[in-house]
Amino acid sequence: MKLNIKNETSRLRAVVLGTAESPGPVPELENAYDPKSAEHIEAGTYPTEEDMVKEMEAVREVLEKYDVKVYRPQLVKDLNQIFTRDIAFVIDDKFIKANILPDREEEIEAIQYVIDQIDKDKVIELPEDVHVEGGDVMLYNDYLFIGAYYGEDYADFITARTNLKGVEHLREMFPNKKVKSFNLRKSNTEARDNALHLDCCFQPVGRGKAIIHKNGFLNREEYEWLVDFFGKENVFEITRQEMYDMNSNVFSISEDVVISEKNFTRLNTWLRENGLTVEEVPYAEIAKQEGLLRCSTLPLIRD
């Protein structure tokens, strides 16, 4: 398999879509990876396997409608395997394994059959102290946008997934890219104030457009740089509640087609007004785990 990912919006040809089958019991509150999951565990509204499987099947149907080759992880019983974006990502023709939370290592093993189809020289393992997850890595042709947390209290946040060593390591690995990092707002307790990954508060879409949530960025200048880069007229600003609902976490099949959650009325209207075909799917149950469409897809090949 010859990998090729240079941006978020070129025509998608192959992707790993997670699976919601056999995700295991509802986690104990102290084992929640993020504040939104914790909120739903506490409220008794944590999503069921049946509902999440239905939601992911709807996405699979859309992908196959557009002739995208869809790979799924091999099933590991009682393991949440929905969020494939966390475990690995592709830049150009390189497949990079993320240094994820230790108890998620089985997730990468479940896609080993896909990795085996890639030239082994193109499969990269990161040094142990280099932390970076796929949700924090956003490609825009010559640019590499990376979400991170710069604070010295990085280790105190289970929600801080990419460190400055991760940013520097990718900068060294891809000297031909213009690397721009963003210091993200983190909270272990309030999901509305937690940008778990860069794709929770920003994503390019269509032709030169972007979805952004201002408060996801700790440094105002970094947020303003992004708005200037795309041009204010091309930016859709989402509210605190819309960020919580994961409005920036849509997934592009091409510059003309995007998969979005069916309840994102304001966003979906704007996307259509800007000439995009919006394939609406139900994904509100999966959103309860602080991840949405981009989080549950790992693109391998785009034109």
Rank of each mutant, 00 (worst) to 15 (best):
T162A: 05
V250G: 07
I91T: 08
P23M: 12
K77G: 06
E224P: 00
D51F: 07
P282L: 04
E64P: 03
F157S: 11
P282G: 05
L198V: 09
L63M: 11
N141P: 00
R220V: 13
A110N: 06
E190D: 15
D121I: 07
Y154W: 15
R302T: 05
T189E: 09
F83G: 04
T9P: 00
A38F: 04
V59H: 01
K120R: 14
I91Y: 09
H131A: 10
T84P: 02
L267F: 08
Y113C: 05
T48I: 12
G208P: 01
V26A: 07
C295I: 02
V90G: 10
P127A: 03
D86H: 00
M173H: 05
Y149A: 05
V62G: 04
L3T: 12
K120M: 04
I158E: 11
F182M: 08
E285H: 15
E285P: 05
I91F: 08
K262T: 04
I211L: 14
I253K: 00
I82N: 12
D93I: 01
P27A: 07
I100Y: 13
A32I: 12
I124R: 03
E21L: 13
F217I: 06
A20I: 08
V53Y: 07
V123S: 08
T84Q: 14
D51G: 13
H213P: 03
V257S: 04
S181H: 15
I301P: 02
N188Q: 14
S296Q: 12
E30P: 00
S22T: 12
K178I: 14
E8N: 07
H169Y: 15
T162F: 04
